[in-house]
Amino acid sequence: MLVGALFPLNHLGHYLHWHFINVSVANTTVMILMIAVFVAAVALPFPGRRERKGK
């Protein structure tokens, strides 16, 4: 195996299992990040608005 990374994720993953739902922690992290980023993108103020007012 080549050394290609500081913390390679080659060890067996962990999985979240709830009824028929079965998702890897890695995929769950990605999905939670996506939702978080979307919520943040909607909620956070976009910079530069105030200066535009003067135009």
Partner: peptide
């Protein structure tokens, strides 16, 4: 246009 003012637009 002035309404283009949100982080949603960067994706």
């Amino acid at each position: 246009p002035a309404y283009v003012s949100s982080w949603v637009y960067v994706f």
